[in-house]
Amino acid sequence: MSRQDGRLRAGPSTASLRPLGLPRGLTVRCDAAGQPLAVARTDARGRPGPELDVERVEEVWRLAEAWWREASQARTYYRVILEGGRPLTLFRDDAAGAWFEQSYTSPGRSGAAP
């Protein structure tokens, strides 16, 4: 089990808290500046789906979490509009360079679980 998923490790055969809203892997083509140009979602078996162009990037923000810990997290989030007008929130894990899809609301604003 990875350090990032926030899961509790309990007794040998007992599952515990299962985090909701975990990021899902995504294949992303970027420009020279690292901005996403096209994305391809992966299916349940990990195979990439059709590539969709990014029409525009609406918002970019960065999160650095627990930077004082060994397992710190640094992410750059992008809220983009895909071809056809569909919005998508994705982020790049700045340490690993991998891309993920994850819906994002500001903490405390949503008021409900995803």
Binding site: Q4, D5, G6, A15, S16, L17, R18, P19, L20, G21, L22, P23, L63, E65, Q73, R75, Q102, S103, Y104, T105, P107, G108, A113, P114
Partner: peptide
Amino acid sequence: IARVVDVEPWHRLPERRYALLE
């Protein structure tokens, strides 16, 4: 069967806010 519980609803990382408790 599980239920959704608040873990750290104020957390900036979405996956740390809520969880399913068996």
